[in-house]
Design a protein around this nucleic acid. Structure first.
Lengths: 168, 168
DNA sequence: TACACTACGCTACGTAGCGTAGCGAATATG
DNA sequence: CATATTCGCTACGCTACGTAGCGTAGTGTA
């Protein structure tokens, strides 16, 4: 907060008059940027919609200030139990809703099995991106997001489809 | 650290004579527990192996002290750049190796496509578990892990297999 | 017994960072 | 001109990590 105050040419007390806590500031920062960057796509094709969301999330995390805010909030939520509730309600759920909307629409259109586990799919997509972001063991490329969506849609087991999906 | 010292009936300085930093203590705690709890399964079936690993990870995170240590280390790695390197090398990679070993063996046995993206599969499995653990929006049940493995193996798209997988 | 050597406990300290109190000055607003 | 709002500034309280220095109990060795 001291750095934020210094770099923005504002007194620290002024920050605390506007946001009650550091987490609240990061939360508002994230929500504002995410509101600009994340939209519910509607291309007509489920795979394309999911790729669009996944790429937008990757871009949000790697190219905007929201990435650091997100990681800091995750850290804060783990260390401070009070932050957990706000983090979940205001934040994680709102982000999950984008994918949830796309998946439910796909079910209505017959592009997805009606009993598909929507929360599970969101966890697999969002989890993989966040996991790679947190651990930093591999870059978050377009190739990665495309392969991730293909994996969640079609799986990696060769049994139902011996032909190599669409890669190369 | 002060609580650890108090509850273990030991002076704080003694802790710092044994572990240079709080992260180092958590790291050793995690590695010791994980070494006992996580093993490379070999049931002959890839799906069963992956379910075994995923369930072991869930148990590790929810039923042992390693869960809190893991989350704390993740938080620490985000906030403190110095911790990131040690976290990755000593920790995340070691955990990824368990699944990596199982997947490579499955490729050798013809149970998995030779060009399957191993790191991607690990990210999807581990990421989904970690994501759900961090956000706490849904319980980490056996049903969840089984469905997760099935999703990664077979996908959720109804096109290649119209019959409802194995649920219910 | 005398002498090191090691490990531990204890108190006190330095440091960083969050969040607050209180005061004064500047800037609207009537 | 009088008042209210907002901001800046300094100083502080608090928590928690990590360190310094000293004293002391136990342990092996001559």
């Amino acid at each position: 907060m001291e750095r934020v105050a210094a770099e923005s040419g504002v007194a620290k007390t002024t920050l605390y008059r506007r946001w009650p806590t550091k987490a609240a500031l990061c939360m508002e920062l994230y929500l504002e940027i995410a509101g600009r960057e994340l939209h519910v796509p509607d291309t007509g094709d489920l795979a394309t919609d999911l790729q669009s969301i996944t790429n937008a999330v990757v871009r949000l995390q790697t190219r905007t200030a929201a990435g650091a805010a997100f990681l800091g909030l995750i850290a804060e939520a783990q260390l401070n139990p009070d932050s957990r509730g706000a983090f979940l309600a205001e934040f994680a759920e709102r982000r999950r809703d984008v994918t949830r909307h796309v998946l439910k629409r796909a079910i209505r259109r017959g592009q997805l099995h009606p009993r598909a586990d929507i929360d599970l799919i969101i966890d697999a997509l969002g989890g993989a991106v966040t996991f790679r972001l947190m651990q930093g063991h591999a870059p978050l490329t377009r190739r990665f997001t495309d392969a991730l969506v293909a994996l969640v849609l079609h799986g990696c087991s060769p049994s139902p489809k011996p032909s190599g999906k669409r890669r190369r």
